[in-house]
């Protein structure tokens, strides 16, 4: 049984490795996520953020601008996840009152 699990896991890892070597190489400035224009001639998010973050929010740290403004709803979701964790722990561990 254990051997079968390890075999499944190894083949899964092998599959991922085969896929991973077809990804753009590490550090490629022209990979689809890093370049400035995609195949549809539209803007790519990463390059747009680099070029416009300071102009849009007067904030030098691009990550902060993306976190709080461009993708602000992700961060609201993150805050709600934190809140959910707090409520979940309260719900699970607080002794029953009354």
């Amino acid at each position: 049984m254990k051997a079968i699990h390890i075999l499944v896991l190894a083949s899964f890892a092998a599959l991922l490795m085969v896929a991973a070597v077809h990804l753009p190489r590490r550090g490629d400035p022209n990979s689809p996520a890093n370049r400035a224009e995609n195949v549809l001639k539209g803007p790519v998010a990463g390059a747009y953020y680099i070029q416009n973050a300071y102009l849009d929010a007067k904030t030098p740290n691009m990550v902060t601008v993306i976190l709080a403004d461009y993708r602000g709803f992700d961060t609201l979701g993150e805050t709600v996840v934190v809140f959910a964790g707090g409520v979940a722990c309260l719900y699970l561990l607080r002794r029953r009152t009354s």
Binding site: P29, G46, A47, I66, R71
Partner: peptide, 11 residues
């Protein structure tokens, strides 16, 4: 943009 790391995955 090639002079800075891509900030999107970091975020």
């Amino acid at each position: 943009p090639d002079l800075y790391l891509n900030p999107l995955p970091h975020t």
